[in-house]
Write a protein that binds this DNA or RNA. Sequence first.
DNA 1: ATCGGTACCTGCACGC
DNA 2: TGCGTGCAGGTACCGA
Length: 293
Amino acid sequence: MPELPEVETIVRTLRPSVVGRRITAAEVRVPRATGRPAPSGGLLNISAELFARSVTGARIERVERYGKHIVMHLDRERPRTGSGRIVLLIHLGMTGRLTCEPVAEFARKHTHMVLALDEPGRWLHYCDIRRFGRIRLLENAGDALGKLGPDPMEISAEDFVERLRGRRTMMKSLLLDQRFLRGLGNIYADESLFRAGIHPATVAARISRKRALGLHQAIRETLCEAIELGGSSISDYVDATGQPGFFQINHRVYQRTGEPCMRCSRASGAKIRKIIVAGRSTHFCTRCQRKAG
DNA sequence: ATCGGTACCTGCACGC
DNA sequence: TGCGTGCAGGTACCGA
């Protein structure tokens, strides 16, 4: 579910309910959601009990998006060890949800964690059907986040062009690579490449400067419009208040296989095709998206 | 550096 | 009705 626009929307709708609040209790049902000592670093490696003990009593100072990660900065008043500052790092995987609910009960079948807040009738629920999501408690988020590339909404056009230089991989693979840019996923990679008129299998280094600049712009526009509509709800995604997004209405290629191209079909009859690139289904118009630089 | 394959999970749509 | 298959917004790890 959650790519940059969805995570951004979740963070924006979460802030009013949680920032400044204190966590008064925590219950974790699926240890794997917080467990699995990650070699990628920093995990306080941790049982469900220790996790609950560590966050209970902490105040939620800030909530930010970093790529597809939700970063919650917590402050503990009298920590047993270390400084009081810890970071709750949440990645929603494919089907993760983070919502504020008026009940404490694990109402959904796949709710794995509930945090009670010091506000009557307000509980933070984490639910993840496929369990690809991860919750980590870190003393320093840098280890986990440092490898990620620039934010696609913030990178300058010149820096973007520069980062494409010498890359021999296909454009679709590159856009999905979180070390290249942080936050794009399958939907927005396909939608951005369509808007830029670039074939997803184009070798990155062969794209002309002009088209690279066009892609930089297309990515920003696609993400901005998606955020304005609260993200794309395909099956699971809702924001922190439980509302779906509406950008799926404006998808031009994603999951439109066999349908007419919205840009060129009137003249050509071209249809959207689906191929596999980088192991992911990839949607594009054979007429509007050419490989030539 | 880059690729393909596999693994991790559940649910759903589909064909038979 | 049930059963098998393939597919789904993500990432990590392996060997080539």
